Deep mutational scan, measured.
Amino acid sequence: MDSLVVLVLCLSCLLLLSLWRQSSGRGKLPPGPTPLPVIGNILQIGIKDISKSLTNLSKVYGPVFTLYFGLKPIVVLHGYEAVKEALIDLGEEFSGRGIFPLAERANRGFGIVFSNGKKWKEIRRFSLMTLRNFGMGKRSIEDRVQEEARCLVEELRKTKASPCDPTFILGCAPCNVICSIIFHKRFDYKDQQFLNLMEKLNENIKILSSPWIQICNNFSPIIDYFPGTHNKLLKNVAFMKSYILEKVKEHQESMDMNNPQDFIDCFLMKMEKEKHNQPSEFTIESLENTAVDLFGAGTETTSTTLRYALLLLLKHPEVTAKVQEEIERVIGRNRSPCMQDRSHMPYTDAVVHEVQRYIDLLPTSLPHAVTCDIKFRNYLIPKGTTILISLTSVLHDNKEFPNPEMFDPHHFLDEGGNFKKSKYFMPFSAGKRICVGEALAGMELFLFLTSILQNFNLKSLVDPKNLDTTPVVNGFASVPPFYQLCFIPV
């Protein structure tokens, strides 16, 4: 009986604490739906499609509103004006990374994606500088992407125009580009180590996009005490870190300090320079996690976009025909596509942009946080508050993009057929937390897609009208449904 009384008292205290925290903070924060004790607004949000729920709530509470995930307040920004004001106009104040408990377990605050403060700034600055020195957006990395595009075309030829699921092959190409940047090595598509790495990356994007992960991140005790797919994700990350550590040891034994070959060499050189400046942010643990982040951000996002792009091109054969006509006119058949071609191919450029806009790969991006107490639109948001960005509300804005739910390359073309930029184009987020590999991803999408369409016609196994382009999961990332196609050599 005594234990029951204690339990009831504990629960009562928890409920009172929950109510007090919510009521004391709500006077400062933007308005929002009334949260339930302990669980907050979790029942009012469709976990399978958070973005749709945010759109519905914005119609009631406006472009800036507050939700509670458990006891934790989260300020939501919906629509271009609110997102721009926060991420661009007040970029420094909104540059923090929001709480992501599962990532905390995986990387302990290291790396480039989930770190904060001085650690994040130094690692991000170093990573950007190193990638630029190796030619991100310049010639040397373009050579690597072109080489991988040629290998991709050869792998597709091996399908002999038979029906195939493109998931694996389209994942190999961007993964190999990242391998060449980090390890100075590309792998054969049949290499077992490479296959294991690909498998872990593919599993992780599916797990991260599941409703279960949303629950884990908002009720963090689940991570330590409950079984579930989150444990598989943590094991996959541990596998990748151990693999990278092996490569780091190989580099330490063979590195030429006067001739760095890749990202690992550059990081080890930085560690050597910083060894007298303790404590340094440049450690082996930081290198492991930064490399894992580059793999995660640079492989599955690009391969998922490529997979979605081919599905949309199957669905819209008239678009595919126009792209192939432009390829034939500008590039021809006797040389590989290059980035200089893009400025002469406005329709193809528009298609690449429209694919990214339409699929809305990361509907709410990753959570941000404010780095200080900030007054925002007459609300006071306390330091450390998590900020949720609705990228969907920007990419699918119906004023900027008429009929935003329709796939239409003319969203990025003017009346004369010239490519038209849009400030609403934010597939990689915006501001200080914009994806480090934005330029690389854009290069890969253009070169891989043009190389495929230069060499193959795409054949659907069903009537294009019957192809479903609805994402199968739409949590962290929008993942396309399973499909097969035939690559018919031109």
Rank of each mutant, 00 (worst) to 15 (best):
V436P: 13
M345R: 00
R342G: 02
I50N: 06
G475D: 05
T299G: 06
I222L: 14
P63I: 01
L485P: 01
Q252R: 13
G135L: 12
I222V: 13
E285Y: 03
S336W: 08
G416N: 14
H411K: 03
Y358D: 01
F295A: 05
Q261P: 08
E328S: 14
F487R: 00
D191S: 07
I182C: 07
K84L: 07
F263L: 12
G98Y: 15
M198E: 02
E93M: 07
T66L: 03
D262T: 06
S390A: 08
G437M: 05
F100L: 14
H396E: 08
G98Q: 10
C175W: 05
K232G: 04
E155M: 05
I389G: 01
N133E: 12
Q356A: 07
C151S: 09
E199T: 13
I452A: 00
F482Y: 07
L156V: 06
T470G: 09
S343W: 13
L195I: 15
N289K: 06
D143K: 07
E400G: 07
S303C: 10
G111A: 04
L67R: 00
F419H: 11
P31T: 09
T386P: 11
F187G: 02
N133R: 15
S365R: 05
G135H: 14
I182A: 02
K118E: 13
S115G: 13
G437A: 07
L128F: 10
I181Q: 03
Y483T: 03
G32P: 01
I182F: 13
F226N: 03
T392S: 14
S280C: 10
M426F: 08
F126V: 07
S460G: 07
V76M: 02
H344A: 06
S51A: 13
P35V: 07
R150E: 14
R144K: 10
C10K: 01
G117W: 05
T320P: 06
N289L: 07
L87C: 10
E85K: 04
I45R: 02
L67M: 08
K423P: 15
L310N: 01
L314F: 01
H353S: 08
G70K: 01
S478I: 13
I123G: 05
D262F: 00
P63G: 11
E444I: 03
L380I: 15
L43V: 11
A439E: 15
P163E: 06
S12F: 11
I141F: 13
G296H: 15
G111P: 10
N289H: 12
S115I: 04
V352P: 02
V76W: 00
M339K: 04
V472D: 05
K232T: 13
A173V: 04
L14M: 08
F134I: 15
L29S: 03
M129G: 10
R21I: 08
E250S: 11
D49T: 05
G417R: 05
T320L: 12
G109Q: 13
R97T: 09
G475Y: 10
M345P: 01
V76T: 03
P260T: 13
V76D: 00
S242I: 02
I434S: 15
N403Q: 08
I374A: 11
V351E: 01
F187L: 06
A441M: 05
S209A: 09
R124K: 15
N334V: 12
K72W: 05
N217R: 11
N107K: 07
V479P: 03
L380C: 15
V355Q: 01
Y308Q: 05
Q214H: 07
A439R: 06
H353C: 11
A149D: 00
A321N: 13
I123Q: 11
S220T: 09
T392Q: 09
V5N: 09
R108Y: 14
H344C: 15
T167R: 09
P221E: 08
F267L: 03
C10T: 15
P464E: 08
K235S: 12
G135F: 12
S365P: 03
H353L: 02
N133S: 14
A161G: 15
T364C: 15
Y243A: 07
L366K: 06
N202A: 12
Y225G: 07
D143L: 11
V5S: 15
N204G: 06
I74V: 15
F94A: 03
S127Y: 09
S343H: 15
L15W: 15
F183A: 03
M345N: 01
I244R: 01
C151F: 09
E300R: 08
I452L: 05
N231C: 10
E272Y: 10
L461T: 13
A173G: 08
L395G: 08
C151I: 07
Q192D: 06
K420Q: 15
I181H: 02
D188S: 13
F183S: 04
V76N: 00
I331G: 01
G417A: 09
I205P: 04
N204A: 06
M129A: 12
L361Q: 11
L361A: 14
V351L: 06
D408G: 03
N398G: 12
K48G: 10
L314S: 04
Q214M: 11
L16F: 12
F428A: 05
P33G: 00
I181W: 06
K72L: 02
V355L: 07
I45L: 15
M271H: 06
T386H: 09
D463C: 06
P63Y: 02
E154T: 09
